[in-house]
């Protein structure tokens, strides 16, 4: 290097924060939930996760290098997160080839077709998930029976599935409730569901870690959960025989996973705190609407994707408070 002085515009110092540090913190935050899923679903969970991660990284590398002809950026951690989140959103007994198709949809369509990290409109993992849900509805909704580390080929329904089926057939809630897991089981994750969504407690733990490390702010998760809880509670109070206790809505399905890990994806969520609150409330309203009145038992994925589409609009209209302005 030459001995010339460097001249650059101010500022001349920079914080130690880097993009990949932020990404890896998200990965660390997801590890407890991942370990729990391995404990519950056995090595199948690990298999699904590894396939998803490797596929996402491989697609990212190949597409960036040979199609986009740019320097591959697979070490920045974003494809890793997409891989883990995709795995978290599918049943643990999903065939390997479906996972790979999901990874291609997530990374290829969801992210790189928009120009890569930072340019995508929709959360890549959710694009992959919804792509699979629509393309392979049977495989995507065949949840393995909990069997302490063994998968015996049997499948069961998620709590939300049970509720939906019961309510559509006109069964009163008091009767459905007998088939549902207890609230402690739901909190700890003793229920069936997608790989990473079952243990609300560990997901919240990871969320707290991300809050402390300032990867996310509280606005989106809180507004999603509060909105869902408030609407669910309202209907429940009106008719507890036709609408289930809001606790089920909060603790089952992908709500925690979606609210804490996927709705908070920086790229696809609004920039200002106020915008984030609106964004979260929108997700909550759509989620609960799909769960209560839609055809699908679970709606958080669709809700987040729909609100992702509104993010640019929110950014355009919700501005930060200007210094000295009103």
């Amino acid at each position: 290097m030459s001995n010339l002085f460097t001249v650059s515009p101010s500022p001349h110092v920079h914080s130690a924060e880097t993009t990949s540090k932020i990404m890896y913190r998200v990965v660390y935050a997801m590890i407890p939930a991942l370990l729990w899923s391995v404990f519950v679903f056995g090595l199948d969970a690990l298999r699904v996760t590894l396939i998803a991660i490797v596929a996402c990284l491989a697609f990212e590398y190949v597409i960036q290098k040979y199609l986009m002809k740019i320097k591959p950026m697979i070490t920045d951690g974003s494809a890793l997160i997409t891989g883990i989140l995709l795995a978290f959103n599918v049943p643990a007994n999903l065939p390997w080839w479906i996972i790979i198709i999901g990874a291609l949809a997530a990374v290829g369509i969801g992210k790189l077709s928009f120009g890569g990290l930072g340019s995508n409109i929709f959360n890549p993992a959710l694009v992959g998930r919804v792509f699979l849900l629509i393309s392979f509805p049977v495989q995507m909704t065949s949840w393995p029976v909990l069997s302490e580390g063994e998968v015996d080929g049997l499948t069961t329904a998620t709590p939300l599935g049970i509720i939906k089926e019961g309510l559509t057939s006109g069964t009163p809630v008091s009767q459905i409730a007998q088939d549902l897991p207890s609230s402690t089981d739901m909190l700890l994750g003793q229920m069936s569901g997608s790989l990473g969504e079952i243990s609300a407690l560990l997901l919240i733990l990871g969320g707290v870690y991300m809050l402390i490390k300032k990867v996310i702010t509280w606005h989106i998760p809180v507004s999603v959960i509060v909105t869902v809880a408030a609407i669910a509670a309202l209907f429940w109070l009106i008719d507890p025989e036709r609408y289930v206790n809001p606790i089920y809505h909060i603790l089952t399905g992908g709500l925690m996973l979606g609210a804490i890990y996927m709705a908070t994806d920086m790229v696809t969520s609004p920039m200002t705190p106020k915008g984030q609150l609106i964004f979260g409330a929108g997700i909550g309203i759509i989620t609960i609407s799909i769960r209560m009145f839609g055809a699908y038992p679970e709606g958080i994925s669709f809700a987040i994707l729909i609100m992702n589409a509104f993010t640019p609009l929110i950014n355009n209209y919700v501005k930060p408070k200007r210094f000295g302005g009103n």
Binding site: I22, M73, L117, G118, V267, M271
Partner: peptide
């Protein structure tokens, strides 16, 4: 690197 829209600047 690319902007990840983390909103830290805001």
């Amino acid at each position: 690197l690319a902007c990840i829209r983390c909103s830290r600047c805001v």
